[in-house]
Amino acid sequence: MMQNKRYCQLNNYKLVTYSQAWAYQRSLVAERINNPSLNDVLILLEHPPVYTLGTGSTLDFLKFDPQVSDFEIHRTERGGEVTYHCPNQLVGYPILNLRYYQQDLHWYLRQLEEVIIKTLAQYDLKAYRLPELTGVWLEGKKVAAIGIKVRRWITMHGFALNVCPNMSGFEQIIPCGIANKPVGSLAEFISDITVDQVRVKVAEAFAEVFQVELIEHNYESATLKAII
């Protein structure tokens, strides 16, 4: 359990390629393995259109042939099946040292879900979990996907919240391998909602759930290229 409130650097980016964000996460994890006293980091950003697969994901959930497709696809070290990222979907990558919280991956997944649930509660939306399934649902539709990797108790990857994206990209896959439950977005429930509005509320909920003090940094995407 966490004894004292920790500082967490909040890095806000706009549109960042998946490869850049992935490399950045790995660099942050490596730094914290070498120096566990470093502050935690929460990265909030959007990605250009991209499909990602978890380490053990099956290609059966793709509705296209990845060998001849023009879609950008990455197989990553996170858990979970295939998912889709695109602009106007808010993606969060927490780099946390769970030794300062709880060394329990199920606890961590439930905390990430709680961040989304509390975020949506700020819009008077009653989001919820489903037993045996990771993620967050709203009126029968999955609005947030979660997939993580933990190395020496340092976390990477994280969550994706559909704010107001073009949902057509999800039609090319069986999202998260769940064929009988549709995906949805917050725009179906709140008109004129934007990612910039939601990222503020996600940060507030994250600070509350994990009991951290956020140190905010806002960057242009070009800054991330310089870092990695």
Rank of each mutant, 00 (worst) to 15 (best):
F206G: 00
A187V: 04
T155K: 01
H47V: 11
Q103S: 05
E114P: 07
Y93S: 04
Y128H: 13
P49G: 08
Q102E: 06
E46Q: 14
K5Q: 15
S221H: 07
L109H: 07
R152C: 10
Y24A: 13
P175V: 02
A207V: 04
I174K: 00
L62H: 11
K181Y: 09
N97G: 00
S57A: 15
T119L: 12
Q25R: 05
G56M: 13
V183Q: 11
F206H: 00
V212P: 04
V200G: 08
S69F: 01
Y18W: 14
I148V: 15
Q111H: 10
C164S: 13
G54M: 03
G158V: 05
P131T: 06
Q211P: 07
I148N: 12
E132N: 15
H106Y: 00
Y24H: 11
Q172T: 03
E204P: 12
A121I: 04
E216C: 06
I154N: 02
R129P: 08
G177R: 10
A121Y: 07
V50E: 05
G147V: 06
A207T: 02
E77M: 02
E132M: 08
M167P: 05
Q89M: 08
I146N: 05
Y18G: 00
Q102C: 07
A187L: 14
H106I: 03
L130D: 09
F210E: 07
N35W: 00
A127P: 08
I117Q: 12
K5V: 15
V183D: 04
G56H: 15
F210Y: 04
L45Q: 03
L59H: 13
Q3L: 09
R151S: 08
T76F: 03
N218D: 13
G80H: 11
S37Q: 02
P94C: 04
V68E: 06
F71P: 03
R151V: 11
L96C: 03
P48S: 12
V150A: 04
C176N: 06
T58R: 14
H47S: 12
R151W: 02
R75H: 13
G169F: 15
G92H: 10
